[in-house]
Amino acid sequence: MTGRTSDAVRVRSRSVVAESIVALTLVLTACTGGADVEPADAEKSIVSIVDETTRSVGGHWTVYSEPTAESCAEAADDGLTYTYILVQDAPPTDPAEAVAAVEQLWKDKGITTQRYQTGAADPILGVRGRGGPVTSMDFLADGRRFSVVGVSECAEGSAVEERKRRSTSSPTP
């Protein structure tokens, strides 16, 4: 593979993850504070469903972004969600088979799904999910990289305060 080709692959792989993040950021603005969900439960739930999703596809996955507290709405104190992202480079599974497996898992979990694909000559396949134990999910299946982005249910609290709490409780190197 030439340097130019590998640069193009890296750019496309990054754009796959970036597309997922942009799509889910738009969904976050629709979230309202959840009076009955505790932050720890929201985080545990999204980690669980993202991990189950990756197991349904198989292969080795890498954490792109640890569960991160985000505001449910424009107001910082109107609840928080956790966004968790995993990626898989050079996936061993056929993208169409992976999308089908993820879609079935999510439906079994009570998540409403919608398949999609990009309009490129070599389309990237995907499935979005909403409801059930999540605010939103996105699975992108490109032959070069898969990604799973999960956004938890909205929980009580402030994302700003949660990030401050985590930064002060983290051990320093």
Rank of each mutant, 00 (worst) to 15 (best):
E19I: 01
G110R: 09
P171H: 09
A40D: 10
E153I: 11
M137V: 06
L28A: 14
P133E: 02
Q117D: 02
S136Y: 06
S15C: 06
T112R: 13
D51G: 05
D138W: 02
Q88M: 06
R144P: 00
L28P: 00
T25R: 11
G143F: 04
V37I: 14
K164S: 04
A96G: 08
V127F: 03
T54P: 11
E70Q: 15
L105P: 04
E153L: 15
T135K: 10
G132H: 05
T118C: 01
E38K: 15
A96V: 10
L28M: 14
S13A: 11
P171I: 12
V47C: 09
R130I: 13
S15W: 14
G132T: 03
G58M: 08
T29W: 15
C31D: 15
T83I: 12
A155N: 07
V9N: 07
A141C: 04
E103Y: 02
S20D: 11
D7S: 09
E74M: 12
S65D: 07
E74G: 14
V102D: 06
P95D: 02
L125K: 09
D77E: 10
G150W: 00
G34Y: 03
T62I: 02
S6L: 13
L125F: 00
K44M: 02
L24D: 13
S71M: 02
A8V: 07
L105H: 09
M1L: 11
A155P: 00
S136H: 06
W106Y: 05
A18I: 02
E43T: 08
G110F: 07
R163A: 08
G150M: 04
E38I: 08
M1G: 13
T53F: 10
S6W: 09
D138M: 07
G131R: 11
A40L: 13
R165N: 11
V151F: 05
Q114V: 06
G58S: 12
T168A: 08
A35D: 12
S136D: 03
S48E: 15
T172M: 05
L80E: 10
S15I: 04
T32A: 15
